[in-house]
Every structure is written in C-alpha cells, then in structure tokens.
Nucleic acid binder design. Sequence first.
DNA 1: TTGAAAGCGCTACCAA
DNA 2: TTGGTAGCGCTTTCAA
Lengths: 339, 339
Amino acid sequence: MARNPTIADVAERAGVSKGAVSFAFNGRPGVASATKERILAAAAELGYAPSYSARSLSNRRADAIGLVLARPPELLRADPFFPPFIAGLESVLAPTGRSLVLRFVSAVDEMAAYTELSRSNRIDGAIVADLRVGDQRPALLAELRVPFVSLNRPDTAGLGPAVCLDDRPGVRDAVNRLIALGHTRIGHIAGPAEFLHANSRQAEWAGTLAAAGLPPGPLVETDFTAGSGAAATERLLALADRPTALLYANDLMAIAGMSVAQRKGLRVPEDLSVIGFDDTEISGYLHPALASVRTDAYGWGAAAGGRLTEHIDNQDATDLELPAAQFVPRGSIGRPGGS
Amino acid sequence: MARNPTIADVAERAGVSKGAVSFAFNGRPGVASATKERILAAAAELGYAPSYSARSLSNRRADAIGLVLARPPELLRADPFFPPFIAGLESVLAPTGRSLVLRFVSAVDEMAAYTELSRSNRIDGAIVADLRVGDQRPALLAELRVPFVSLNRPDTAGLGPAVCLDDRPGVRDAVNRLIALGHTRIGHIAGPAEFLHANSRQAEWAGTLAAAGLPPGPLVETDFTAGSGAAATERLLALADRPTALLYANDLMAIAGMSVAQRKGLRVPEDLSVIGFDDTEISGYLHPALASVRTDAYGWGAAAGGRLTEHIDNQDATDLELPAAQFVPRGSIGRPGGS
DNA sequence: TTGAAAGCGCTACCAA
DNA sequence: TTGGTAGCGCTTTCAA
C-alpha cells in the first residue's frame, strides 16, 4: 500500500519547513498568506491530509467522542430514537473533524466499555443516554476525568452538563386531552422502571390523573418491545372494568396495542383511544393515525454534540434546555363510546 | 487532566523494558509467562491500556473501518436496516479492538468523505452500502488503496469482495404466492431506480409475473418514504382496472399503503393484498399482520465486518453469499375478492 | 516570518 | 528471553 503523503512531503514541495505546513493547516498566525497559499496548493496537488493518529498523539486529543449503547438488538431493530439522534450528533461533529465512537454492549459491560475507551485515549468526551435509576456512569466518567453530557439529568449527582428535553408537557397534554374527551379510566403501558425516562412518563401520567381528581388507571410495565406491548394490552382489555384509553411509553407498543384491540373487534377510537410516544415516521400514516408525543431526536443529538464539544473545549458545563416534547393529536383518540 | 499511565510506567513497575510490555500486550512470543503475568498485573493495578493513537501511528493501522451513509434524516428516522446492520458490524469489530467510523453526508459528499477518511489514515477499510447504478465508489476506494467490501455486487467492476444477500428468492416467493392465490393484477411500489437493490426487487417482480405469463402490473417509483408510499397507493387504487395486490419495496410504504386502502373502505386482504419488504419489528403486530420479505440485517452486518477484517488482514477477497431473503406470509394477503 | 528539533506513546528491530 | 533504541507523523517551543 503506497503510503499517503506526509507533512514532510508537503513541506519539501512547498519549499518550507514542516512547522510552517502545520501552522498553515491549523490556521495559526505566523505564516505569510502567500506562503500559506503555496503550502495549501502543494498539499492539494499531493492529496495530503494530516494523519489522524499522528496528530492526536501529538495533540493529546482523540477528536472523537464515545457513545455506549446497552440495547438488545431486537429493540434496535425498531428504535426510532437513536438513528436520528446519531445523525444529529454527526451533523455537528463531522464539520469539526471529530467522529463518534459507537459501542453496542450488554448492560453489564457498559461501564467497562467507557473505561476502556477512556484509558486507551480513544475519546475525549462521552455521551450518557438512557439514564437509569441510581446510574453509576456519571460518577465513573467523572473519576476517569472524561468530560460528558447526559441526556436529561441523572438522579445521582450532576457531574456533567445535562442536555434536557422535557417529555412531561407532551404527556400531560396527552392525558389532559383524554380527560377532556370524557375518559376516566386511562391506563398506562409503561417502559422498564429502571429507566428515568420511563419513570418520568409514568409519573406524569399518574400526576395528571391525580390533578384531575381521577383514580389512577391500570398500569403495566413492559420491556418496550412490540410483543410486550401487545401482551400488556391483552391484559388490560381483559379487565372487568377495562380502560377506555391507553397511553403507551412508545409508538411501537402503541401500534401493537391498537392491533390487539382491533383484532378483538374493538374500534379505535370509539371503543379504545390510543396514544403512543416518539411520533415515529409511520404513526401519521396508520389507520387510524396514531396520536403520539414528539421529541426531536435529531435536534437533541445536535444539541448534545454541540454542548459536549463546548464542554471539552471551554469547560462550559451549564445545562441546556431544549423545547419540550409535544403532544400530536390524531385519529386514534376520541370520546369514549364514540359519541 | 491527569495523564493516563503509559507503557513506561507499566515497564518500570514490573521491572522490565517497554518492549517487553508491548510484547506481553500483543500476545507475542518472547516473554516468559511469569514475566508476562507480572506485567499484566502491573498494568491492571495502574489501570493501563495502550494508547490508541500511539499504537496506530506506530502500527500504520487505524483499527477502524469507515461507513459513509448518504441518507436524508427523514429516512433514517424509520430505517429498519442500518441500526441492526451497524450493531452486527460492531459485534465483530469490538472484540478485535476495531471501531466503526460513521459519516452521514449528502450524496454529493459521499466520495469526498471516503477520500478524507482514507487520506487522514483514519480507517483501514470501508464498507460500501446502498450501491447505485454505475457506482463510482468501488473504483475510488481501489484507487485510494482502501480495502473494502460491498453489500451485494456492484454493476461496475468487482474491485473488492462482495457480501451478498440475495433478495430475489423472497420477492419471487411473494409474487408467486399472490399468483397462486389467484391474483392477476399485481402492482409494485418500487424504490428509487438509482439503487441496485430497488432495481433488483423490481426486476424480480416483473420477471416472476412474466414467467407466469401474466402482464406486468402497474408500477410506481417512490423515494422510500411513507408519504410517497401513500401517494403511490392512492394513484394505483384510482386506476380503472385497479390491482388486487401490491408489492412494496419496504414495509414503511406498505404500512402506509395498507392504511390508505383501509381509509378508502377497502378491506385488506379481501379487496387488496399487501406485501412489504424488510420485515420490520412492527409488521407482525399490525392488523392485519403484514406479510413481508425478511433480510437478516444484523447477520449481514456481522458477515460484512468479518469479511472486511479478513480482507484487511489476509487479503482474502472472495465473495461471501449469505442465506437469501425469505418471504414471510401473514394476514395481509388472501384471495382476490376474499373468497 | 521561518526553520530546527524535541517530544507524544507505541512497535519492532537489533544486540546482548 | 530480555533491554535499548530508532522511528511513525504531527505539534509546538525556541532560535534565528
């Protein structure tokens, strides 16, 4: 494999020193503009780009950030959050020459993965997503001295800036809309209680019911998969006093639940109103269209990437608050009984 | 930031030379096993891991592979292929210490992104996905001397190994099943003609109809989005002699199409049979459940990652053929007229 | 404004 | 089997 040209080749061709080439490429003062042009021209002719590893060895900067995901593959298959989140991240990283180091691991290997990435100097910052109750990752990263941002605030000490997108207003509006339509038995198909985001949605559902003076509806905890959403729906629809509306912790389960109801001969929304969460691409195209709660995953990714690079560069570690999640009403909700 | 321990720290603590530590960490012969243990113990105590950039500068290996995706964010939001594909890739890369460098770009910047990754020595191999008609990427990567694998074979010269998953048997079985059920007007909602995979599905649909002596059904080309699938469906259902069955190039459009039909008062499958492609997680949980064609994206990712690392390490550049895509029959298909 | 040279932490070669 | 050492390609300091 013919070696790529090095800084020395460019320097020779332009008739300057290696230092000058380096300065030219990093936009630093001390190079006459004519010289700089000559250098850049020589580099272009040679097809030169600075070697990433040499630069980061010298720099002590990896120009990369880490994201470790502990999701089982079957959830990944249908996950509407991470692809646009990662695309948003990349949209701010790539222009600055940074890249994202992704790791998919099982939950038990999560801490080890962050540790390994840090010790091998592979990343100079990290993103903590899917916060759990009592999450140890913020403390670990602080100990490793890896700057990080978390998606929303951990329930443990805030050791790094949080980039927050409040999902509660969307959930509250959703539940209130159901209440306004006349529903009094509003169930919730929740995500795993270990996750803060699943907890937050559940708490907001319960709180909104309580604020309206309604009894808490039935609740089932799931693992976020379509199958568990379908099973949970079966269970709630078999109750003697079955709910007339169901709020799901994601669209995947909501879609599965809607089908379960339809298969039982129930009409949506006349016999059962359904609301999801995520506002997946497909939701608006279902029959009936699925009401949902929308979070801007792409924007969240871009914001997290931006705040993280600022944190790395300037130590700016203040939290960032994004526009809250929004309820998107659609045909899957209506008055109980369809009146 | 307190610097991570270096190889010199470990050597000093273990009372050996840096060379010995390096050998111990790379599992190379020439280190007595007692010495090796002492070295590894010292490293563990110090929390040492080899510096990635120093190693790859010395090695001339990036220990990373590149994947450049030219997908618009709105397609990424609902894409059922790349998340599991990437997870499959990582599953074989991570254990060998390699990582994946992802880039999301617009189609015009695709070549530039590969060039930049190669010139900066950031990757030692690449993956070419979403092959297009007359794709220039294989030639570019060959010129850059970057080993690569393509997903399926390009229509241009085969300059690198292809990891192939034939989608035709799945499509053929799907169409033949419709024919066996008595359908004679079978339409196709195709993906963009620039993509080889979209072409392949379309050609197989047409070929299977022809082989059965049936006239080609109506065809609409889309951009793979739910919206375009819905619009295409509207168009075909408005035809005087409307098709009784529709084969879609992905599940996203198939789901949207199914809803369009239902909204028009058509019953699925009695009035319209529907088949998708991808076998998304949600498809089996719809009402009716969506028949589809399944490709193992996770397995494809793992195979592509495996073949690419072999190609990088051993120059093994032979093609790899994976199990073909499989038709998954479900409730969305039936006899025309519902008899 | 420019050039020379000393690292960055590792690998790999050569002697011992 | 071990230790010493010369790079890898870049950044950055210091002299000129």
